[in-house]
Amino acid sequence: MTERNVRLSGVSQLAGGDYGEVVVEGVAHIRDDIRCERLEVSGKCRVRGRVHARIVTIEGKCDVEGDIEATEIRISGWLGVVGNVSAERLEGSGLLRVRGLVNAEDVRLWGAGRVSEIGGSRVVIESHHHSGWLRWLRAFEAEVIEGDEVRLTGVSAGLVRGGTVYIGKGCRIDRVQYRQSLHRSDDAVVKHAEQA
């Protein structure tokens, strides 16, 4: 891509459109759909549209009112998405809130969050909600988690479905459906489990 690179510091606005690298250091408002090679947010950013990028890195706070589509998403800050999130790789220790579906090949999260649905090949979520400045937040919550390999620690979910499922300590799961195997910590609460 030969598009413009922009660095937003201070309080600024950006029209939607095609960009190379977009770096948000201050408080930025992106007014429409944005398509870029990299989106890096270390400040605070609100996007009133969709984000289409190769790499998204969130160290600050970012709210997206549409969908995010990326190859790689890294979160150490706070990411809120009204639409769906789709990526090959989603990883991070921050806080993730998604109202729609998180669809990623490889999910590795060790922060807190609330997501309605997560699906992919490998879904690993280890939430340790009693440490650090995130302790006032609740653990990781999801309605549905699906994957070929699912490993959860400290996660509350309605339904977990997968091939190989590991339910670690601190989990509270209403219903688990597994195809190959289920490993379950004594410390986890699973209301109903079935091989299907």
Binding site: S86, N103, A104, E105, G119, G120, S121, R122, E143, V144, E146, G147, D148, G158, L159, R161, G162, G163, D174, R175
Partner: peptide, 27 residues
Amino acid sequence: SYGQLYRWKRKRLIPEEWFIRKSTFTG
């Protein structure tokens, strides 16, 4: 597998509108 289904959805091999959400007795 679940992974394949989600991958095909991401790649838009299966259109969004074919995923029909319904409530059943298990949620």
